[in-house]
């Protein structure tokens, strides 16, 4: 698809957690997506250390922006707008991205759009699969979030339907990985182990499975896995990691996909989007497809590189805001670590 010349050229900056993401889009055409990750610096701590992440963002920002421009074959002067994640996320980490975005906006004399991280996870799918159906249901699952959203128009209105009452899905993956002696971040390692195991080997509990809400709970599941493993070890039995990983993973994706389909049915919506880092999980993608097919729901899942945090998603949402004629943010825009999902832009 050849981009139309009048579509805005937007640079997006994402620093809500441990990835310094910079993306450039023209309309819904992806021109560059560069990410500098500090994940290796966090691995030995078993989780993201906010101060380590913030320091890494400051180091990585300008080189990552320059790399993105280089990859897109563009100069600063080509840009029409800057978009940045204003929240939710780690306060100190967000602030580095917001400071950079404001400086780029002021220095280039182009408008700034402060956007919601979660809405950006929804908007990014348009770079791969075209305009979003209005409305659609979005399920966002990551290390920090597990949410079901009704999205009438991602540039204007996002309505929360349910979310986790305790741990995020990705957080449960990290914690279970630790119990199983797998590295951080746990998601990819559990996914890999699970392929060699059986998802029905252990019947782990499914929190809030039949409670009639669209909320999630993963804390009990995590504890159940730890208890099961400890009981095995205490009685001197071998723990077959692939089976435990597969059974845990099955419990998570069973609840997620069941509630996502329920959300579609309840709101009479036939389009489901799954995004966020956990959407890179191969079993979640497979089971979501299976259940959507059975329910007559069209499923959209961005490729894994666009599911994890990145700057392209921020640029994509920024591009939607420009196209919708939304007023830009002021340059005294604060970073808001607990920005509600109902606030798409600030």
């Amino acid at each position: 698809m050849i981009p139309m010349a009048d579509e805005p050229l937007v640079l997006g900056i994402e620093t809500s957690c441990d990835e310094t993401g910079v993306g450039i889009v023209r309309g819904h055409t992806l021109l560059a997506d560069t990410v500098a990750s500090s994940v290796e610096e966090h691995a030995r701590f078993g989780g993201v250390v906010p101060e380590v992440a913030s320091r890494a963002h400051l180091e990585a920002m300008t080189p990552t922006v320059e790399r993105a421009l280089e990859r897109a074959g563009l100069a600063f002067s080509d840009l029409d707008a800057i978009a940045v994640t204003a929240g939710p996320g780690l306060a100190g980490a967000l602030l580095v991205g917001v400071a950079a975005a404001k400086a780029y906006s002021l220095g280039l004399g182009v408008p700034l759009y402060g956007v919601n991280h979660l809405a950006a996870h929804v908007a990014v799918d348009q770079l791969e699969h075209g305009p979003l159906p209005k409305p659609c249901i979005a399920m966002l699952v990551s290390g920090g979030h597990s949410s079901l959203l009704l999205v009438p128009d991602v540039a204007k209105e996002v309505i929360p339907l349910g979310s986790t009452v305790d741990d995020a899905a990705g957080e449960a993956f990290d914690k279970v990985a630790r119990v199983l002696g797998l590295p951080f971040p746990g998601g990819p390692y559990i996914d890999r182990e699970a392929r060699q195991g059986s998802g029905t080997a252990v019947a782990f509990p499914r929190g809030k499975y039949d409670d009639g809400t669209l909320d999630f709970s993963f804390s009990g599941l995590k504890t159940a896995v730890a208890r099961w493993v400890e009981a095995r070890e205490a009685s001197g039995q071998r723990v077959h990691v692939p089976d435990v990983a597969a059974s845990f993973q099955e419990a998570v994706v069973d609840v997620l996909t069941r509630k996502a389909v329920a959300a579609c049915r309840r709101h009479g919506v036939d389009d489901l989007l799954v995004g966020g880092g956990v959407a890179a999980n191969s079993r979640l993608r497979a089971l979501a497809q299976e259940r959507c097919d059975a329910a007559g729901i069209r499923l959209r899942v961005p490729r894994p590189g666009l599911c994890t945090d990145n700057g392209a998603m921020v640029a994509a949402l920024g591009s939607d805001l420009v196209a919708a004629g939304i007023a830009p943010s002021h340059l005294d825009l604060p970073a808001d670590s607990s920005l509600p999902i109902t606030t798409v832009h600030v």
């Binding site: 913030s54 920002m61 300008t62 600063f76 400071a99 780029y104």
Partner: peptide
């Protein structure tokens, strides 16, 4: 640190655009 980074990030980004 949180405040400190605001100034340094702003300086780096602003200077690069100029």
């Amino acid at each position: 640190y949180t405040g400190l980074r605001v100034g340094l990030m702003t300086a780096q980004a602003l200077a690069s655009t100029l």
